[in-house]
Design a protein around this nucleic acid. Sequence first.
RNA 1: GGCGAUGUAGCUCAGCUGGUUUAGAGCGCACGACUCAUAAUCGUGAGGUCGACGGUUCGAGCCCGUCCAUCGCUACCA
Length: 646
Amino acid sequence: MNADQHDPTSGIPDRGRYYATTPIFYVNAAPHIGHAYTTILVDVVTRFHRLRGNDTFFLTGTDEHGEKVAKAAARAGLTPQAYTDQVAAEFRTTWDAMGIAYDEFIRTTEPRHQRIVREVLQKVYDNGDIFYGEYSGLYCVGAERFVTEKEIVDGKCPDSDEAPEYRTEANYFFRMEKYRPWLRDHIERNPDFIRPERYRNEVLAMLREPIGDLSISRPRSRVPWGIPLPWDEEHVTYVWFDALINYWSALVSRGEEQRYWPVVNHFIAKDIVKPHGVFWPTMLKAAGIPVYKHLNVHGYWLQDERKMSKSLGNVVGPLELQAKYGRDAFRYFLLRDMSFGLDASFNEPAIAERINADLANDLGNLLNRTLGMLTKYRRGVVPAFGALERPDEVLRDAFLALPDALSAHFDELHFERGLEEVMQAVRAANKYIAEQQPWALAKDPAQAGRLDTVLRTCLEALRCASVLLECVMPEKCRALRVQLGLPDASATLSDARHWDGLPALTTAGAGDPLFPRIDLAALQDELAADSGPPLEHKPEVDIDAFAALELRVALVTHVEPHPKADKLLVLTVQLGSETRTIVSGIRAHYTPEQLVGKQVVIIANLKPVRLRGVESQGMVLSAEDPDGSLAVVTVDRDAVPGAEVR
RNA sequence: GGCGAUGUAGCUCAGCUGGUUUAGAGCGCACGACUCAUAAUCGUGAGGUCGACGGUUCGAGCCCGUCCAUCGCUACCA
């Protein structure tokens, strides 16, 4: 590969080398669109750096220690190692199926990782930045964790009836607070350390107040599935000291920390800003390792319309979307439709519209019409340029400016802007055809030279576009070049810096449409017809189980908002001679006025419970729609309040 | 209630440290042009109080305050 001589980012020290990471994913389910986005993003970025000729390294992997993994393994009837072997393999298979070109896949259970974690820990320990401390607090046995006093309701653990017990547990702590002033200063001095800026500001806000010291171990007796501390084998590392170090251990175990660590770029979603923006740099500082270069934070993909719901089972996975819309087209959508750092919403019609507009109509059709004319007018033989006229030069210059423009935008994490600039040039090429009217030139033999130039200009435009878009759509861009008569091979960015990349007199010809147009009407119908997955049923019960419930009609006589909870209403209901108070979580769905006078159905023999200080003596039945909205159950005609429902 | 955000054309969104005029793009829509092409392309248009109110300023979509709405996390949803 040739180093890119025209790199506009030569001012930044990253030049020449690049190292990017995804988080290591916690292994318990197939990747969702969030995982897939981060990974595809890093794949695009690293492919782009390779395209530029940079020495590039791409790391991903899996986080495999901890209590939850051990439990999941037990549930599956496997040893933790066997379980994680299986899940890690699933992740690898998924990334491979998605064409992710990672250089290394690290697992936190690998000996090389464990060794380096222990080394780093020992170093920090030797520096005096780890101390042994006792932690006392309220512990809930059922939940196997300490709880805060705020979580205790009526002296009971959350999610259970048991009372917490007072326990003391000894842990090791990392003196994180000690490094707070240093970290604040570092972030102040390096404005692009965490980016986009909104997340930098968020971390600075965290650092304005004490961050405390970080508990980094758990007793091995309680959490056996972890890396033992080097100086105390009775404790294992807890979460972050294990997981974050993967970014470093993967390089060290290959002996490549000198080569890549100075240019490390972490890519994460916004939910793990704190560990990466606060814990990780202070850990590195304490361990005497230079801090990372950039932390790049992206937002979430939100699915609107059919609200994504696991219980509904209508979560559309990234693999499905890829299969449906095409791997490369889906990648293009993800990169084009999200502003880096912000949340983005999506739905399938939006994906289809983007693909149709940009890829099928603009780019794919440009290829098709150009090759159509080449075949028709020149029997598929690539012509040489004649004398260039002004419009030819304008289009050429627009394309030749793109490698720098694209690099600048990608370096700023503005992927959508970079892609939009490329598409603008593609649209300019379509406009160029409309203006030059090659079909008219073809009718006049005297214009043969001019037609050659116009056709060749379009061909070069397409060739350059295929190079510029290669990191986003590697397969399609190669296929595009093959249709142009070029070898089936990768490109380098410098291929897009000249306007004579096609050998004259070779032949080219249209193949299948690169991006078939998606029938939007059919898609709408399909989505409308999709009534969702089958219902999940609970185990059968006999009539006695039902008879144990006392359901009664109750007249709502008074309703007021719960004084101390946003989502609760306090209803006063009448059933026969009794008056009861019921607390119900329907405040988002009903106003008090809408409920007063209604006859609702309640469970009358439910054990009373206090909710945020108000005792609830029963429960109002309601129907929950797939989108979460509630409709209370009422009776078809007025009944006597207190009437039993059977 | 706490914490964090967001609110710009029908839709999805750009608008960096406040000052190129009559606030932009893409999609969609309407009309027109063309025919090489995946009913694609090209042109034109449709006139959005830049959430509301108040303030700072010579000047604010961009700064400050208050409010409203929405979203996420959280408390909580018997």
